[in-house]
Design a protein around this nucleic acid. Structure first.
Lengths: 185, 185
DNA sequence: TGCAGCATGTAAATAGTTACATGATTAT
DNA sequence: ATAATCATGTAACTATTTACATGCTGCA
């Protein structure tokens, strides 16, 4: 269970509600740890029970009251311990790679179409990272230690997305070629 | 449930046992879809019940008999349908990125050590891919369509690992600098 | 009138991990 | 002796997804 730690990390940077964690106003962690709102609400409840987070109810006249969570001392301690502990790389589950591995069994055109959907998603992720780079990290040398840590993570996102897109370009060219060959038959 | 399709894909290329699927004698799918043996055995049972795979018992004098699975016509049809269907990118759950995002909260040395563990794992993955490249894909131009598909997947693995390692190099340099700064205090 | 955004959750189902269980063979 | 490899599985637990449930506001 590491959603727990992703939430602790996000809340440690800025107190926020479950809804905000899901939508990520302060950005970025969402890009490194996927979770649904349902999961987040459940986890927030458990983190509250464990005393790692506390919330203050902010009553609103019309809407349900906002529960703004912030981290406690023991939450911060737990987070620190987790950061310093050994971790395993996350298990790889790459459906597109499996598809390509046996791509010869299917028609190239639908596979190419699916690849293009993925390309769009990766491109918009990259665009988001590049925006953040310009907005918050224009002056790379003047960054605080905190800033440098966050910039490194952003760079990771950009490097990985660019590598993915470079691969996808070759894959798309090959699939287009397969589709053309099929058309000729 | 896409372990199902990863297994169908692996078995379609070569009939094999659950144990072999776990250890991956024919290689590669393991690198794109993580699963424990327990999960594989369970899924094989279900795929058998659904008629997508069948197995033949190969009795062995001393050991438990090997159940060699191969794909059925309806399994092949299901696999083809899945390849041609839309798919979503797998959810990202990158604990190391989360750690780095709030890296300023912890001591740099243990974090650096954890990063280095990850580097070793990624390096050995890359080495595995490079071996496979030399062994099976030395003559890239003479590849069959099947071969080209599999080569593309291997290239994906290599590109992504190299990008990851390039990032890790920068991250390690920064953490080493943090550690040195701490040492001076 | 209908949809998107804000704001909270519960319940049921599926997917995945960890622990337990068995037993022979071969290498150190 | 002890561990690793081959070979199968079950049971309990944890994590994640999907479906259900509520209700107000503002925009097109």
């Amino acid at each position: 269970m590491a959603l727990k730690h992703a939430i602790l990390a996000a809340v440690s940077l800025e107190p926020q509600t479950g809804y905000e964690l899901g939508k990520q106003i302060n950005g970025s962690i969402r890009f490194f740890w996927a979770a649904t709102l349902q999961q987040i609400y459940k986890e927030l409840g458990e983190l509250g029970d464990a005393g790692l987070l506390i919330h203050t109810d902010v009553h609103q006249a019309d809407k349900p009251s906002r529960k703004v969570y912030r981290i406690t001392d023991s939450g911060l301690k737990e987070l620190k311990t987790w950061i310093e502990a050994e971790s395993d790389p996350s298990p790889v589950r790459d459906a597109l790679a499996v598809k390509m591995f046996v791509g010869h069994l299917a028609a190239p055109r639908p596979l190419l179409k699916d690849l293009q959907r993925h390309v769009e998603i990766h491109e918009s992720k990259l665009a988001h990272y590049e925006d953040a780079q310009e907005k918050y990290f224009a002056d790379v040398d003047g960054l605080s230690v905190e800033g440098k840590f966050r910039h490194l993570v952003l760079m990771k996102g950009m490097l990985m997305e660019r590598a993915w897109l470079a691969w996808a370009k070759e894959a798309a060219a090959f699939l287009a070629q397969c589709a053309a060959a099929e058309g000729r038959k």
